[in-house]
Amino acid sequence: MRSHEKPARIAVVTHERDLHAHAVKADMERRHPATVHILESDHFSRAPGLSWSPQGFTEPVFPAGDGTAVDLREIDAIWFRRLGNARTSANPEVTDPVDRELIDADTRAAALGMLTTEFHGRWIDHPTAFWAAQNKVVQLRAAHEVGLRIPETLISQSPEQIRKFCGVHPKAIVKAVRGVMQAPAATTTVSEELLASESSLRVCPAIYQEMVPGRRHVRVQVFGERVLAALLESDDLDWRPNLDIPAAEHRLPADLEDALRAVLRRLDLTMGIFDLKLTDDDEYVWLEVNPQGQWLFVEGMTGLPLIRTFTDFLYERATR
């Protein structure tokens, strides 16, 4: 720890058992004069719970995972990672699904309101920007306008439009516009069965894209100006379900790194986790950005110093 560094207090809003948060907290407190409070969003009912009053009847404090109460007015930066957890261990005594949904919805609403009204430090990143940027339409537009190569894309629930698009792109893929946690779906190729199903096509929009060939998938971590990329080799269209695959550090061309930073600026983000594909013709194709995507596994698979790099980025944001 360098003695001339500024002290900082940082909060992480996330779910229980978030290994990303605990790894960064340990590294931060070991190397910087900073304290990290992990605010587990599924355990806000711990004492003192959440309380707020516009007339100041109460202090804007959040219960932290270590049993303390954290005053939002004393925090320099919030790393806003997750707000909610469908697999939480909290409130096991509440078994009615509707009751659980209400607890989740109202806790999130109260917490978000308190955070956005009472916290005046630096966000990584602000919830408004974070959630807007997650929208695939918004991010595809941003990437396209920056000049990145993106797949030919149609987001539609029109059977006529979808069949026409897939006629032009015979190996087209389909994936969720947003998806649901209860039943995540891997990206797949559009089948004849699907194209024949008028009702399945029409019931809701989905993303249809040209097939981008190749087995080289690139996961790019952009933390501020820092860019660390990994090459994941998989024959699968969607590498996520199988992480037992070869992976190594990968260096991106400088102009591509600049373009990724430009996408983040357009989306009002300071960090993002990008998915690209590197074709057999050595062309990088942009697929999506996850504003608070998972990145710790990339360190586990490649040895890239992501915990250390993210920690330094977070500390710099908190003390700027």
């Binding site: 990672r81 707000l83 469908a86 959630w131 947003r178 995540p184």
Partner: peptide, 9 residues
């Protein structure tokens, strides 16, 4: 489901 797109409110 551990990626962020599943945690939108």
């Amino acid at each position: 489901g551990w990626d962020d797109c599943d945690y939108m409110p």
